[in-house]
Simulated assay, not measured.
Amino acid sequence: MSFVRAMLATWRAVLADAGAVLLLLGACVAYSFFYPLPYERETVERVPVAVVDQDDSPLSRQLIRFAMASPQLAVRQVGRDLPAAQAALASGEVMGLALIPAGFKADLQRGKRVEVQIAGNAAYALINKTVLSGFAAAAGTLSAGIDVRRFASHGASMQQALDAALPVNYIARPAFNVNEGYGSYVVPGVAPLIVQQTLVIGMSLLLGLWAEQRRAGLAPLPTRLQARPWSGFFGLWAAFAAIGLLNALYFFGFVFHFQGYPQAPRLVEMLALAALFALASSAFGLCLGQFFGVRERGMQLLLFSSIPMLFVSGFPWPAESLPEPIATLRWLLPSTPGIQASLAVNQLGAPFSAVTTELLALAAQTVGWGAAAAWLFRRRWAPQ
């Protein structure tokens, strides 16, 4: 069978199998809409909090007003009863609390350092961070106002008082994740893994089915491709690689733009990365899939490998903190260089020179996994 006929036959086999269509063609579309959905709001806002004001002074009430004005906080309870606020935090009614101690105003007027204690629900990292930063901003605003009034009382002009109270003007301008949103952080990093895993699992589904057909005495597609083994194998590989390429370009070119995630893509680099990643992922899937003799086995085993693959990629967890054997073996997975290169090229606008290591790793995986898959193909599917 010629290369083109092998490729077309593979496509027909994919389209004739509802499960394969769902995984290879439909899963990425479904993931592209449902996976970003929980992160649609990007940043955490209006977190319910309580304030325990044991001072009940104009300054403590000013601090509460600053907290109420913060877009990060929603002050739901204000009182003097600390146990009641702690119970509300424990029950989840509020997600954080601030304790303004007695003597707050008097200590500030004497120039003493005052501590406002803040507690958050650390079971939710982003919410806890929002609580802490919201109260910290409110306290910082109050502190700056006190400093300005103190300098002004010593004869300084308002501008001089402002300059003395804020000697360093801090302006934060995020360069890439401009909203500092969680969705803009996590979805672009996970997208290459989604492309890889849907492709690999879908391929294992088909290869497992063909193994079952062979045991039943039928002649599945790989056996028919053995009439011209090399053109047949490369046609099979190319068909799956084309699916991976379409899914990669769908995420890199459409989903990131549609979902509003930050992009600074360089077209040539993006196309080269998508092609190499599709070739490496399909070779990886073609090699692994030939070890499964049952249709469902690949899904059962590979589905649970997605989270470990993500964590060893160096994206959510620093690669330097991984045990050395894992830090080395992770380079056998296309998702490792694929995720790093995708973030660099699609989000940061990196040129080829910045992702040379990752592209060479994908090329090496294409050759290595492709050679292993070809060897298995010749041995496993030879006519009986």
Rank of each mutant, 00 (worst) to 15 (best):
A87K: 10
L63A: 06
S313Y: 06
F304M: 13
V49A: 11
G298Y: 02
K105Y: 07
M95L: 13
A280R: 08
F254I: 14
V355C: 11
A211T: 01
T141D: 00
Q197V: 11
L23Q: 15
E358D: 10
P318I: 11
Q263H: 05
R215F: 03
A248K: 07
G189L: 04
L348Y: 13
Q300L: 14
L126E: 12
R295S: 14
P71I: 13
L343V: 12
E115G: 03
F252L: 07
T43H: 01
M309N: 09
T366A: 08
N177V: 11
P265G: 02
A354Y: 06
N128M: 02
V186T: 06
Q159R: 11
Q54C: 10
P48C: 13
S282H: 03
S70K: 03
L24P: 02
W210H: 01
L207V: 09
R110H: 05
T223K: 07
R330T: 14
W375K: 12
A165N: 14
A278D: 02
S204L: 01
A98L: 00
Y185F: 14
G145W: 02
L343Y: 00
F291T: 11
S70L: 06
G181K: 06
F311M: 14
Y185L: 12
N179P: 01
T223D: 03
R297D: 05
S133V: 13
E42F: 00
Q160L: 05
L348A: 13
D55S: 14
G289Y: 05
G103L: 02
L23S: 13
A239L: 04
G293V: 09
P192A: 12
I339F: 02
V78G: 03
G145L: 04
G145I: 04
R46G: 14
D163R: 15
R214Y: 01
R215I: 06
E358M: 08
V29P: 03
L24H: 04
N179Y: 02
A341N: 04
Q54Y: 00
L199I: 10
L63S: 09
E93L: 14
A137L: 11
